[in-house]
């Protein structure tokens, strides 16, 4: 009897969440099968899969997809590598360890809009600190970080990497501390050198944690919006327009609601596939153990 009562704790919530998302998904899907522009709402008409075909042949949309992929892969990889390096570096006893951890947390909890503004400020071609530091190092010609289409995407990447590498580091550090130390000690006793212990014992043990954090970062990067909106708004020459930004522009500049929803739906499907992968990695053992 009582066992059943626990159902009422979560079922209404889940049913409500489920119903809302079902209705929304159905409505959005319906929109993508129509041609609805806010400029002419009366002229809504059913067009079948046209919007999807349009996306497949839209050079701008495909470009945005490619940049989204490039951005996601690049920042995820770099953040993992840098984060891991930091962890290995910090994995020892030293005074102020707790303080260092607290400081590493600051970029993570900073408002992303403020992060975008900060880096826009740092990257200002004439008064920014980045170019000033470069000029001290002998780079005379100021770099136009956000105005040069060849490097603008990388400038946004730098901001993203700055904000999220500490996250990777802290998460990995937490995982590292939860690991048993026996295998490491055993390897050391067996005469393995410190780098061998790191590569052959430690890293394999951290693999699952790294995979999880990589997937989390990848999912967030696919959806990245704030930094792009604040730093470049997709320019110059479309060089920083990602799929999410393109969807936003389609909806709120071109008022092409149907096409915007098509982009959003495709993005959702992509991220959901990635999510299922995360889930598979994240929770397999624990749940089976309790069954």
């Amino acid at each position: 009897m009582n066992q059943d009562a626990t159902r009422y704790f979560y079922q209404p919530v889940l049913i409500f969440l489920g119903a809302v998302s079902l209705v929304l998904t159905a409505y959005v899907t319906w929109l993508t099968l129509n041609d609805l522009s806010l400029m002419k709402p009366q002229a809504q008409k059913f067009v079948g899969l046209d919007n999807y075909w349009r996306l497949l042949t839209d050079a701008r949309g495909l470009g945005a997809l490619w940049r989204t992929a490039l951005f996601t892969i690049a920042v995820t990889t770099i953040e993992i590598l840098l984060g891991l390096a930091i962890v290995l570096y910090l994995d020892r006893e030293f005074k102020g360890r707790r303080l260092v951890r607290a400081l590493l947390l600051v970029p993570i909890i900073m408002t992303p809009v403020v992060v975008g503004l900060t880096w826009r400020f740092m990257f200002d071609p004439s008064t920014g600190m980045v170019n000033y530091v470069l000029s001290l190092l002998g780079q005379d010609r100021p770099m136009d970080w956000l105005g040069n289409p060849a490097i603008a995407l990388f400038a946004v990447m730098i901001a993203d990497i700055w904000q999220w590498t500490p996250f990777v580091a802290l998460l990995t550090l937490a995982a590292l501390e939860a690991l048993p130390t026996d295998p490491l000690d055993a390897a050391r006793v067996d005469g393995a050198k410190e780098w061998q212990v790191t590569f052959y014992v430690l890293l394999p043990m951290l693999k699952r944690a790294l995979l999880i954090v990589a997937l989390i970062r990848a999912i967030d990067s696919v959806k990245a919006f704030d930094l792009f909106y604040i730093m470049t708004r997709g320019g110059p020459a479309l060089s920083t327009e990602t799929l999410n930004l393109y969807g936003y522009i389609a909806a709120f500049t071109n008022f092409d609601v149907s096409y915007a929803m098509t982009i959003a739906l495709v993005l959702t499907v992509v991220t959901n596939i990635a999510l299922l992968a995360v889930y598979g990695v994240m929770f397999p053992a624990r749940n089976e153990a309790r069954a």
């Binding site: 999410n244 959901n272 999510l275 309790r290």
Partner: peptide, 25 residues
């Protein structure tokens, strides 16, 4: 565990959609 896993997966799925998709409707 089985029931829970299915529910948790669903909950996680909710969190993943880009905001664009529900903001306009």
């Amino acid at each position: 565990a089985g029931k829970r896993r299915a529910h948790e997966k669903f909950i996680l799925g909710l969190r993943i959609a880009p905001a664009l998709i529900f903001v306009v409707p």
